[in-house]
Amino acid sequence: MERVYDSDLTDAQWLLIQPYFPERDPSKAGRPREFEIRSILNAIFYISKTVLMKMLHHRA
């Protein structure tokens, strides 16, 4: 079970952007994905949010 953060995509948000990240076609060349795209996006959003908050707090 993954930990849930405020910066994570909601199910509704994921449904809106999911079509832009199609499933990998096994008949094409390339490595299989090791991580879900949604998890990667959640990590990016978490890092960007925490860094931004630290920058804003540092300037105050």
Rank of each mutant, 00 (worst) to 15 (best):
Ser27Gln: 13
Ile40Tyr: 11
Ile17Gln: 01
Lys54Asn: 09
Ser7Ile: 02
Glu23Pro: 03
Arg59Asn: 03
Arg38Gln: 09
Leu56His: 03
Ala29Trp: 04
Val51Met: 00
Leu9Thr: 05
Glu34His: 13
Gln18Ala: 13
Gln13Ala: 08
Glu2Val: 14
Ile17Gly: 00
Arg38Ala: 05
Asp11Tyr: 03
Gln18Val: 05
Phe21His: 15
Arg33Gln: 15
Lys28Phe: 07
Arg33Ser: 14
Glu36Asp: 08
Ser7Gly: 03
Gln18Cys: 09
Leu41Asp: 09
Leu41Tyr: 08
Val4Pro: 00
Arg33Ile: 10
Ser27Met: 12
Thr10Pro: 00
Thr10Cys: 00
Ser48Asp: 02
Leu9Ala: 03
Leu41Arg: 12
Glu2Lys: 11
Arg31Ala: 01
Ala29His: 01
Asn42Ala: 10
Tyr46Leu: 08
Ser39Trp: 07
Leu56Tyr: 03
Ile47Thr: 14
Ser7Asp: 11
Arg59Pro: 01
Ser48Leu: 02
Glu2Trp: 03
Ile44Asn: 06
Ala43Ser: 05
Leu15Cys: 09
Tyr20Ser: 15
Ile47Tyr: 15
Ala12Thr: 14
Arg31His: 06
Arg59Thr: 06
Met53Asn: 14
Leu15Gly: 09
Glu34Arg: 15
Ala43Lys: 04
Pro22Gln: 04
Ser39Leu: 09
His57Trp: 04
Arg38Trp: 04
Phe35Val: 14
Arg31Asn: 06
Asn42Gln: 11
Val4Met: 01
Glu36Lys: 04
Pro26Gly: 04
Ile44Tyr: 12
Trp14Cys: 01
Ser48Lys: 08
Phe35Asp: 11
Thr10Tyr: 00
Thr10Asp: 02
Val4Glu: 03
